[in-house]
Each structure stands twice: as structure tokens, then as C-alpha cells.
Write a protein that binds this DNA or RNA. Structure first.
Lengths: 214, 214
DNA sequence: ACCAAAGCTAATGTATACAATTTACATGGG
DNA sequence: CCCATGTAAATTGTATACATTAGCTTTGGT
């Protein structure tokens, strides 16, 4: 996406996630254009995108409000993500090539390094974790699936989850990644699916424990 | 969506599905605005939407081309649809209320009536079939799931499938709907998921048989 | 003849003015 | 006092002009 559109998107998303625009707030295009320092046109594109990602909802008469995610919504997000990402892992198992496998191993090494420090480097952990999952999704070779997952994997949710991971949970996450790599190396789609499902669902429960009602 | 946007969306989608704009064709905003009789602004919104639905792809430098769906893409679409719609059926089983159940029964009766005629009324069959599935998706109570399915259920694909259904296949489809209603009535989520999975996957094979390479 | 660079062309991105629609409020009638 | 209707304000939808960027062609040099 282009500069102004991208900026508007990031800015508005920030307003929502930071809580500056709490659920139920009405957002108007003119107001947002003012805040973002761009015209309404790129704001409109950003709003459309945020709407498809369900950050925003439209009233019957096209007015835009910040969506309210309750705990059921979050549970459903994790369930869908587990389903889709497990499917991606299954496809990846029979399609991934050697280079991508090496990249996975390298990413997981970097994740391990970030987690091993005395005070775990959460930022690196997160970015490398995302890199790992992105490689799997790319290896699945389905643009449709990738598009769906992009709309559902909310990085702020992942962040909150990882921030609450204990040292043993971090280690377990890394171990699961390793197991996934093994499943890929042996082209075992069933195994890959099972590992990925457990990986995501464990993240869900870590998240729920950290944030009882969200 | 508003008038001009909606018109542009329908028009462009029609160009793609009719084959007037074959895969690989570059579409420019000005040209489409001219064809649709609206300005570039609503065309842009339509293009964004068609892009998220993967009818269109963007080159590295933001130029827009008609996407090429090969048989693998279609198989993947059916697989994802089966997965998501089965999930929807499972959720619906424990959430659907009496009124919605009655609507399902009524819709299936209308489907049966359309199929029973000497020359089956395909148009009615399709619209009522869609109605049936939409009720199920609504009963699942997950806007996210609904949004994903909306982007994946390509009515033209469904149309081609239904058009090739034999009389016995039509009857079987209606019977499966009936079984789904039973699963809902008994609140059996596993049953509902299984029936829906079979329902979609059978449609896939009917489609594949009708259109070997697409 | 081939390559490179510069400028031209065509496409998308952005801003702004105007149109259409909806909401809210006020005012009048019952 | 309540409800309906009309009008004004606010908000979104559309059109168009302008800015920017990518691609292509042409021209100059080697």
C-alpha cells in the first residue's frame, strides 16, 4: 500500500489498539483525515481494510464504529487460526523445499537465542516468531489461505500472549517449532497439522490465563 | 455498498466471470470507470474488494491484472469452504433457535419444489440453496467466519456445479440438507460438521467431473 | 549495433469540491 | 403533551483535478 494510505491505516489501527478509540466510538472520515494529516481518500481505503479485518463495523447507514471484541470473539479467532494454520502446515509438509526448511531452522535458532538471554528479548522473539509462521504459510502455497490468515493473526494478541509466556513456555514453543520442522522434513502432513494445532491452542490458553476476560 | 460502487463491482466481476476480461488482462481504473459509467473513485473501491476476493492480483508496482484460477486453486477453495462451513455448521448446531430451524425447513422445501418440476428450476434452486447456507452461517454467530466464507463462496462456481447435478444428485443434496436439520434439531455438532463436510466435498467432485480442468 | 540515460507517456495515488443521504432538532398541529 | 413533518447540520458518496511514480521509447554516445 502507498504512503498516505499505509500511514492512515497504521495510525487508525493504533488508535483502536491503544484504547484511545474505545469500542463503540464513532469514527468519522474527516476527523481521521485531520488526525492522520492526509485527505479523506486514503483514510477511506484504510477504513475499508480495517472493516474487512473486523476492527471496525458499519452501522446500517454506513457510519463507522470501533468494534467490540469480547472473549467469545477472541476464542473464535484462536479456533479459526488453529484450523487454518494447521491446514497451512499440512500443505506445507508436502510442498516445502530445502531452502525454506533451512530458513525455518535459522529462524527458530534466532528465536531460541532471543529467549535464552537473562532477560528474554521479547521484541526479537516476536518478530522472528512471525517470520517462522510466515515461512510456513508461504510454503503452503495458497494465496487464499494466506490472505485469510493475514486478516486473523492479530499481532497485538500474539504480543500479549508471548509477554506472559514463562521461561518454560518459551522453551516449549521453541521445541514445538522444532517438531514442526521434523514433520516437514519427513513430509508428514498429519504430524505437522497436529503439532500446529497444539501450538496455537496452547497459545490460546496462555492468552486466556493472562487476560481472564480480556 | 453504495450505488456506483456496487455497480462498478458487479460490472467488473461480470467482465471477469464472463471471460470478456480473460486471466492476465491488465485492467486500468480509467478504462473501467469509462465502461461502468462512474468515476475512478468507486472503481477503486470495487477493485480493492475484488482484490481481497482474489479475482484480481496486483503487480509489484500496483498494476492490476485478472487472476488466473487453475484447478489447484479451485480444489483449495472447496477444501477451505468445506472446512469453514463445517465449522459453521458445528457452531450452529448448539446455537440455532427454533425460528431459524423453521426457516431452514422452509428453504429446503422450496429447494425441493424447484428440483421436483419436470424441468428443474435452477435459478430458484440456487437462490434458495444460498438462503439455506446463509441461515446456517448466520446461526453460527461468528462475523469473522461469515466474512471469510463470503469471500470464498463463488456463486458462479456453485452455479456450474448445480447445473450439472443429475436428478438423483439434486435429491441427494436435498436429503443432506434434511440430515443437517436433524443434526441441528438434536444439537449434535459432530454430526452437523460431518454432514456439511460431505455435502461440500460431494459438490466439489460434481464440479470437477463437470469441468475436468476448468 | 548496443547500451545508457533522459524525457515522455500512462498509470496509480492524493486532495478537494460538490452531491446525496441521514440524523437530529425544532416547530407546529392534533 | 405527544407525534409528525420539515429543515439544518453532519457525514458519507462521487467526481475531477493535480501529484507522483513506474515503464517505455527515443536519442545520444561508444
Amino acid at each position: 500500500m502507498s504512503k498516505a494510505s499505509e500511514r492512515a491505516y497504521a495510525e487508525i489501527r493504533g488508535l483502536i489498539l491503544s484504547g484511545d478509540a474505545p469500542p463503540g466510538t464513532q469514527l468519522t472520515e474527516a476527523q481521521l483525515a485531520d488526525i492522520c494529516g492526509v485527505s479523506r481518500t486514503p483514510v477511506r481505503e484504510a477504513l475499508r481494510r480495517l472493516e474487512t479485518e473486523l476492527y471496525l463495523i458499519r452501522s446500517d447507514s454506513q457510519r463507522i464504529f470501533v468494534a467490540d471484541w469480547n472473549s467469545d470473539d477472541l476464542a473464535e479467532m484462536f479456533t479459526l487460526r488453529a484450523m487454518l494454520e494447521a491446514h497451512a502446515a499440512g500443505r506445507a509438509a508436502t510442498r516445502i523445499d530445502g531452502a525454506a526448511l533451512d530458513h525455518l531452522r535459522a529462524a527458530n535458532d534466532r528465536i531460541a537465542a532471543a529467549a535464552a538471554a537473562d532477560t528474554p528479548d521479547v521484541a526479537t522473539f516476536l518478530s522472528e516468531n512471525r517470520c517462522f509462521h510466515d515461512i510456513v504459510i508461504a510454503a503452503a502455497g495458497s494465496p487464499r489461505l494466506a490472505a485469510m490468515l493475514a486478516a486473523i493473526v492479530e499481532q497485538p494478541v500474539v504480543r500479549r500472549t508471548a509477554a506472559r509466556y514463562s521461561r518454560t513456555e518459551l522453551a516449549r514453543s521453541i521445541h514445538e517449532h522444532g517438531e514442526l520442522i521434523q514433520a516437514f522434513a519427513t513430509r508428514d502432513a498429519d504430524w505437522a497439522r497436529a503439532v500446529m494445532t497444539g501450538h496455537i491452542r496452547r497459545a490460546f490458553h496462555a492468552f486466556s490465563a493472562a487476560e481472564p476476560v480480556a
